[in-house]
Simulated assay, not measured.
Amino acid sequence: MIYLYGVLAACLLGLGFVLQQHAAREAPLKDMLSFRLLLDLMKVPLWLAGIGCMVVGQIFSVLALSHGDLSRVEPLLATNLLFAMVLARWLSGERLGWSGWAGVLLLSGGVAAFIVAGSPHSGPAHTGTLRHWLVFGGVLAIALLLVLTARHVRLVEEPPLLAAAAGVLYGLQDALTRVSSSLAEDHGLGRMLLSWEPYLIVVLAVTGLLLVQSAFEAGPLRMSLPALTAAEPLAGIACGIGFLGDRIRVTPGALTGELLGLAAVVTGVFLLGRHPAMPTGSHKDPAESTGSHRDPDESTPESD
C-alpha cells in the first residue's frame, strides 16, 4: 500500500503542477512573492483544478507516510516529474527522444536503487533534542537562504531557487506530517490538535505554495519543477534520518548504491525538466508588465 499511495500521490502532484504553471505564467509579475498572487489565481479555473489535484495528491502522500518510512516514501514522490512529463508531452506533441528516455530510466531506476540498497526502515523515534532542532533549524535556514539569494539575482535565475526553497519546505512538511500521523495513531486526534506540528504544517504548505506559484509565474516549468522535485526528497530524507529515527544500511556497498541511486534521481529530474516536451510557456516580457519588480536582466547592486 505504501508504493500504491506513493505512486498515486506522485501522479496527481505532477498533473497539478503542470496545470498550476499554465495558469500562473499569465499572472502579473508585480504580485510575485505576494499573497495577492494566490488571491488572483484563485479566480482561474485551471489553477483551481491544479490545486485540487495537488490536494488529493497530498492526501495520498499522507496515507503513504502514515504506513511507511519517510526515507522510503520521498523517493517515490519524486516520480511526480514522470507524470508531469506525460501530460506536458501530450500538450506539446514532442517525442521523448534519447534524453527523455534517459531521464525516465535514471529517475525510476534511481528510486528503485536507493530503496533496494538502503532498505529504509524505522528506528528509535528519540534522536536527542539538540540533534532534532539542529536538523530542523538547518532545513529552515537553507530554505530562507535560497529565497534571499533569489531576491538578489536576475529575474530569469529566480525560478529554480524559489522552487528549491519550496521543495525544502515541502520535505520538512512531509516529516511533520508523519509526526502528526503518529501522534494521532498513538494518542488520539485530540492530542494531535494540541501539538504545534499540524499548525506549522499549514504555515509551511501556504508558504511553499506561494514560492512555487511565484517560481511558475517567473519562468517556464522546466526552470522550476526539476529543482522542486529534487529538493523535496533530499530534505525529507535528511529530516527522516536526522530527527525521526529512520535507518538505512551503512555498509560500503549499500552506501555506494544509495549515493548512486540519489545521483541518478537528481540527474534524471534535471534531464526531464530540460526536455523539449516540458512546456516553456509564453510568459510576457517582464518589461511590459506594469509594476513588475525588475527587468529580467537587471541585477541588484549586491549581485554586481
Rank of each mutant, 00 (worst) to 15 (best):
L87T: 03
L200D: 06
I237R: 00
L259G: 02
P296V: 09
L13R: 05
V139G: 10
F270K: 08
E185Q: 12
A27I: 00
L82G: 03
A113K: 01
F35P: 04
H275D: 07
C11G: 05
D304A: 13
R294E: 01
E26C: 02
G103K: 02
L134T: 13
R95G: 10
T300D: 12
Y5C: 13
R154E: 10
L4C: 06
E157H: 14
R191N: 06
F83T: 02
L144M: 13
R154K: 11
T290N: 05
W47N: 04
A264I: 04
Q21N: 07
P124R: 14
L134G: 07
L155P: 07
G167R: 10
F17K: 02
L70Q: 11
W133Y: 15
T251K: 04
F35H: 09
P279S: 02
R222H: 10
H293W: 14
H126T: 12
L106S: 07
W90S: 12
G268H: 01
L228G: 11
G167S: 05
K43I: 06
K284S: 12
M192A: 09
G190E: 13
A230N: 00
G57W: 04
L4R: 08
P28N: 05
S181P: 03
Y199R: 09
P301F: 08
L172M: 15
H126Y: 12
S214Y: 01
S224F: 06
L193S: 09
L12P: 11
A166M: 11
F270I: 07
T300L: 15
A215H: 12
G253V: 05
Y199D: 09
W90P: 02
F114V: 15
F243T: 01
V55P: 04
L106R: 11
A24P: 05
L210D: 03
A64S: 13
L81K: 05
G219T: 02
L228H: 12
S92H: 04
V139W: 11
G109T: 01
A150M: 03
G257A: 04
P296S: 13
H293V: 14
L155V: 10
L134N: 10
M85I: 11
P233R: 14
D304Q: 13
I237Y: 05
G291I: 09
S195H: 13
V168L: 07
L244P: 06
